[in-house]
Design a protein around this nucleic acid. Structure first.
Lengths: 205, 205
DNA sequence: GAAAATCGAGACGACCAGTATCGGAACCTC
DNA sequence: GAGGTTCCGATACTGGTCGTCTCGATTTTC
């Protein structure tokens, strides 16, 4: 492909050789898309190359192996869930969980996550990248919790780092381990228990 | 069982041909062991066969493919965490989480889980088996919660099915997604928040 | 002791990962 | 725009593994 210099046509579809960042982005996008609608099983470097309009060697020049590519491609799905400062911890984490819920419903990100986990199992050296991706995902919750603590909305002795797992864990566990699609009821139940759990000790007195 | 007691020769290495359930068990055990100390990457059917003292064809006669075998082998790690009826919900779920914690510390079950997830990503048809395995793991928590509700130790409107994810999710998320080894502090923090969250409305008065 | 069920061994085809090489295309500098 | 440098495309090649298949051997069953 692309060797013959076809006289540049009016059409924009006439693609020159892709290079640098453009090629990188095209590869990541192609990887992600293939995972989503073909499944990790059928993901081959050759298919990625074809879909990205790139040679296989170009891929191997950028990533050490297939696993690293897959983990890296997952960040396309990583639109960060910013939490606005509403002033209510309950509403803020509910908002966050609702965002995550819609995430699990159309299962693009589920597939991307699954593929990443598979890649991680196949190549443990991708662990750092994988963990960092998760950390970025949960950061807004930490910030919301710190704001809430500053406002006195939650107890001062609440372990904020533990909140990461408490808030993100239930949906993840339900979807990815129990293999049950989470729903609104689950979100509300979790939010309720957590908020009661972190509330200051006494309203009276 | 396939094998009757064999007239034990002097040499213990003298093994007859394995058949039926004996062969099945040996294969599952070999699969599990290989995953634990070689990693899913290096898991090959050939290695499993060799370690189990069995032919490759014997494996393919029992499982459709490698993925199904891996998911099935995970149940070896599934020693069920029975929760005794102590009479204190807090102590009971703490006991459960401590059991899970020790689980995550020596990472046998982590590797088994990872391998299962990888297999799931590679072959979606294993999903039902995977979900059932998780469900079995969390059942003791459901039972403990029901006892607690009957005792009036937790609110009547607590959604018990949501508790599955709230209790099991944090450790799983921390270990498998954040890639941080959970510790005692996390367990205590989670237990504390959950127990406050499900406690009846007023202790005083 | 014969028939039936099961297993071992190995050959086989297909697929795919990852490496290596080299000519050509794109970019850059003067 | 000539010349040099960097990056890319294409392709061949090796090695490993999955999953299938066949057939002789072993074990169980009756």
């Amino acid at each position: 492909m692309g060797t013959q210099e076809i006289p540049v046509q009016n059409g924009e579809q006439r693609t020159k050789q892709m290079r640098g960042d453009a090629a990188t982005e095209a590869i990541l996008r192609a990887t992600h898309d293939l995972i989503v609608d073909e499944g990790y099983t059928n993901l081959t470097i050759d298919a990625v190359a074809t879909r990205a309009g790139v040679a296989r060697s170009t891929i191997y020049r950028r990533w050490a192996n297939k696993q690293a590519l897959v983990v890296d491609a997952a960040r396309i799905e990583l639109r960060e869930l910013e939490i606005p400062d509403i002033g209510s911890f309950r509403e803020e984490i509910r908002m966050y969980m609702m965002g995550r819920l819609s995430w699990f419903l159309n299962d693009e990100s589920t597939k991307a996550t699954e593929a990443s986990l598979a890649a991680l199992a196949e190549d443990p050296s991708t662990e750092a990248a994988f963990g960092a991706r998760t950390e970025a995902l949960i950061t807004p919750v930490v910030e919301a919790a710190e704001r809430a603590k500053a406002r006195g909305e939650i107890r001062q002795d609440v372990d904020i780092s533990a909140l990461k797992g408490i808030i993100a864990g239930p949906l993840t566990f339900t979807a990815n381990y129990l293999r049950i699609t989470p729903d609104l009821r689950l979100v509300d139940a979790v939010v309720d228990i957590i908020c009661r759990g972190v509330a200051p000790d006494d309203d009276s007195v």
